[in-house]
């Protein structure tokens, strides 16, 4: 078996056995169920409120699981020295990093699917008509989370601090949803020597707006296939760059 798959399967198992992971999914299920109360307050817009709230909650919890996992997994392995017994086998460091990352994304996908199952069940009970764009919304969430996890892996390795990685991802995640607006503002309002720097900073942020497919649920205009494929390619490219940067850090590291 490919070592990337071996490490991905190991990471998946590690995450799924993790108490925090299990509690987070359980918590999501309870909150989703309780969101029925929120929906009841919205009268005619009940299913819309349930839909938006559920997807938003699933996105936030998936983000928390993936980013926390990415920020802690490698650092914890270094701290507990379990990494010694992996890196003293014929496993290149980029394979180790990629395997760990793939496992995190896969386990997050599993968590996301579990939350989606509860959410969908509630929606269908409330009479929501199934739309394929729901799956597209989940894909968009997973792609955004994959970017955030790759970035968290890099920041955690570079700073060796879980807290700084979590803080930075929180900021990037928020700003990343306004990346086009930030670029526009930088172009329009900034003058002088600082303008190119601000513009470059805005460009460096991941453009998470590209992957916000959930906004299209219930609207007649589904995103064109080209936009979806572009979003997926963008997420893959951005994540690859972050992982390459993380690898450049791990490659130089001594234990």
């Amino acid at each position: 078996m490919n070592p990337i798959l071996i490490l991905a399967a190991h990471t998946c198992r590690e995450q799924l056995r993790n108490r925090s992971f299990q509690v987070a999914i359980l918590f999501a299920g309870v909150i989703l169920y309780m969101s029925l109360l929120l929906g009841a307050l919205a009268a005619e817009q009940e299913t819309r409120v349930l839909l938006d709230f559920g997807l938003g909650l699933s996105e936030l919890l998936a983000l928390a699981l993936a980013v926390f996992g990415a920020a802690t997994t490698v650092l914890k392995e270094i701290e507990t020295k379990t990494i010694y017994l992996i890196l003293t086998r014929p496993v290149p460091r980029f394979v180790y990093l990629l395997g760990r990352y793939c496992g995190l994304v896969l386990s997050t996908a599993a968590g996301l699917l579990a939350m989606a199952a509860v959410h969908l069940a509630l929606l269908l009970v409330k009479g929501w008509a199934w739309q394929a764009s729901y799956l597209l919304a989940l894909t968009g969430i997973l792609l955004k989370v994959a970017i955030a996890a790759a970035l968290a892996s890099f920041v955690a390795l570079a700073t060796t601090s879980v807290l700084s990685a979590l803080t930075m991802i929180g900021i990037v995640w928020t700003l990343g949803h306004f990346a086009p607006e930030l670029s526009f503002l930088a172009r329009q309002s900034m003058k002088g020597p600082a303008a190119p720097i601000l513009l470059a900073a805005a460009q460096l942020l991941p453009n998470l707006q590209l992957l916000n497919f959930r906004e299209t649920i219930g609207t007649p205009a589904a995103p064109p296939l080209r936009a979806v494929l572009f979003g997926a390619a963008y997420a893959a490219a951005y994540s690859s760059i972050c992982l390459a940067l993380a690898y450049s850090w791990l490659r130089r590291k001594e234990f």
Binding site: E14, T80, K81, T82, Y84, L85, T88
Partner: peptide
């Protein structure tokens, strides 16, 4: 093969 001092496992 390597046996570290105080080996740590999952």
């Amino acid at each position: 093969g390597y046996l570290p001092e105080l080996p740590y496992f999952y």
